[in-house]
Design a protein around this nucleic acid. Sequence first.
DNA 1: ATACACTTGTGAATGATTTCACAAGCTCGG
DNA 2: CCGAGCTTGTGAAATCATTCACAAGTGTAT
Lengths: 217, 217
Amino acid sequence: MISQARSHSVKRIADSTVRRLSAYLRFLEESAVDGVETISSDALARRGGTTSAQVRKDLSFFGSFGKRGLGYSVPELTSSLRDILGLGREWNVIIVGAGKIGMALGQYEGFEQRGFHVTAVYDTDPGKIGTQWGSILVRDMSRVEADIAEVTPDIAVLAVPVGEAQDAADRLIRAGVKAILNFAPTQLQVPGDVSVRNVNMAMELEGLSFILSNRDR
Amino acid sequence: MISQARSHSVKRIADSTVRRLSAYLRFLEESAVDGVETISSDALARRGGTTSAQVRKDLSFFGSFGKRGLGYSVPELTSSLRDILGLGREWNVIIVGAGKIGMALGQYEGFEQRGFHVTAVYDTDPGKIGTQWGSILVRDMSRVEADIAEVTPDIAVLAVPVGEAQDAADRLIRAGVKAILNFAPTQLQVPGDVSVRNVNMAMELEGLSFILSNRDR
DNA sequence: ATACACTTGTGAATGATTTCACAAGCTCGG
DNA sequence: CCGAGCTTGTGAAATCATTCACAAGTGTAT
């Protein structure tokens, strides 16, 4: 048994580490398709844009998964990483906001593939409620509390206009949601036991704008 | 004159700093709408989920913008931040990939509002080429090099399927693109003079999954 | 059975970022 | 004009993250 994920003590794991673990997992999955059986920290690093020491350090927080002289078994490390990232189960996800982004997300296959099951999409617009997009039915936002009381979703994806984002978040949190993926370009105010991740395209573009503006000084 | 953006020496500015500057700018714009004239680092911090010392340190890399005892002038700091972030001009953006995400992005008003002008959308699918979505016409990807030779876009947004992302990036880079906003869930391999920002929804969900799985140990 | 080439796991060192803490500057009221 | 009350700007300290460097395993070839 090489795998021993989570037997380690609980130092707080940095966000950057978790992101890299995701990246390693993706690359491992690609490698498995190509029939690779074993992979070194160096190969993993090159592909992920980091260093081999970083890869080994990241993994060392959770256990020891490799064989000296040889590297890591692709299927074993894949399985360990899934386990570490909590992907060993299905997560229920609701999407709030059936605009362009909400609907694009609802139909994105990548979610289901990784165990994120979209159980419902909500909107307040009567013109949208009841419409079907692929396999997804848009439900009335006024029902969201009642629905959540029955089956609490693990994660809520917020894809509403910026002006409605805080209100929507407050409702979801009051109803018991503990994790939000926020697409609205605003910093949500949430209690400490609620986790938020932001996806903010304007901010990313501004980051590029900054880099381009400051390239050469 | 309080504003003195960019007169400072050029320590490398951390990515995290730039993201926070974006957040401050957004909040300043909201405050201006509410008629606020002056704001303290503490108010800025509370709203942005950071500390007042962090706000002041972030700004101090670029100059000194406040008045002791009073805080920052909202319009002056807004203008300074715009300047720092390189938002004093229009940036030309092309979108590559006219799938759901590409089209949602193309129609997102937030881009134009902040000076990111979408000049073209490209796809390889003959069924999509020539179609019009709002004001945006989908063009033939095979023309992209010729178009770029005429007017180099400042930023390319990559919204193609993961299997095509690296090839598309290579083409764009060969044609002279120096900044890419990548929505494909893959780590692009690019030369050192090309800047890439990644937006990866699966990775964000996995980050939440990790947090939810490790909450209580 | 041994030597060799390779790769991990991890303390220690370095580097980067955040927080602390406080002098200095500004405004306002009297 | 002076003192009280705020708030900035910034070195120094503390914390956090990455890189270095190497002992300790592992597989392979002879």
